[in-house]
Amino acid sequence: MNKRIESKRTGKIFVVILLSLGAIIMMLPFLWAISVSLQGPGLAYVTPPQFFKPPYHFDNYIKVFKEGNFLRYAANSVFVSVVCIVGQLFSNSLIGFGFAKYNFKGSQLLFFTALCTMMIPHNIMSVPQYIMWHNVGALDTYLPMTVKMFFGTAFNVFLMRQCFMGMPNAFYEAALLDGANPIKIFFRIYLPMAKPMLATMATTTFMGSWNNVFEPLIYLTSESKYTLSLGLLYIKGNYEHNIELLMAAAIIAMIPVVVIYFFAQKYFVEGLSSSAVKG
């Protein structure tokens, strides 16, 4: 028996060593970027490469913020992301509730179409959607990126439906006897219970919107409207000989998503894995 415990312990140490090695490889690009972002001008091109060698130039980060419209891009990204989150939370919870709690005629077929839309390649959709927004004169606005978020997206509808299906119907019947209407039942009783799933959805929506580069690229033409990802591509050329500033800009763009994930992590893994198993 002792032997078994011992072998289990060496096994665990072995696992930790492997995981640490892997983690170093995974974190290397980030560490490298942070190291370079703190260097003085010119040092980024030195061989052998310098790793976290003082003096540290924290003012590189301040320089990036002062350069051009960087702050503006960040503010634009925040705005677009917040609108997308509001739209997604509102629409997907309503739609998911409808599919989960009402067995109306054609609901099965309608839900099946939702699953089908998940399989349509976005390569096909981007061209006609662009033409559509062109025809209503909404190019170079945030409408193409935000409006559709208020009408539900297939995967999130699916998640919300799963979530509401897991909640007992008895609450509904009870509330009805008390004279509540369906809207009230939804907002007062079921929606508060879905908070963990809503947190997951807010996080994934934020990630999707913050990291989105294709849509800003095709829809936005005025530089003052650029989101952070597009703005980064735009200012890339200015930093051709100041890699340390480019790295600082990249780190700044990464921070918000990492921070938000850190706080929402508990819900996030839960939501993802529960959907993955059933999906």
Binding site: G22, A23, M26, M27, P29, F30, W32, A33, M207, W210, N211, V213, L228, S229, L230, L232, L233, K236, L246, M247, A249, A250, I251, A253, M254, V257, V258, Y261, F262, Q265, V269
Partner: peptide, 18 residues
């Protein structure tokens, strides 16, 4: 788990610079 998931979160444009 957080460390292995970190690259998934970060914007592709920023990652491409690095």
């Amino acid at each position: 788990r957080v460390m292995y998931f970190m690259p998934v979160l970060t914007p592709i444009v920023a990652v491409s610079f690095v």
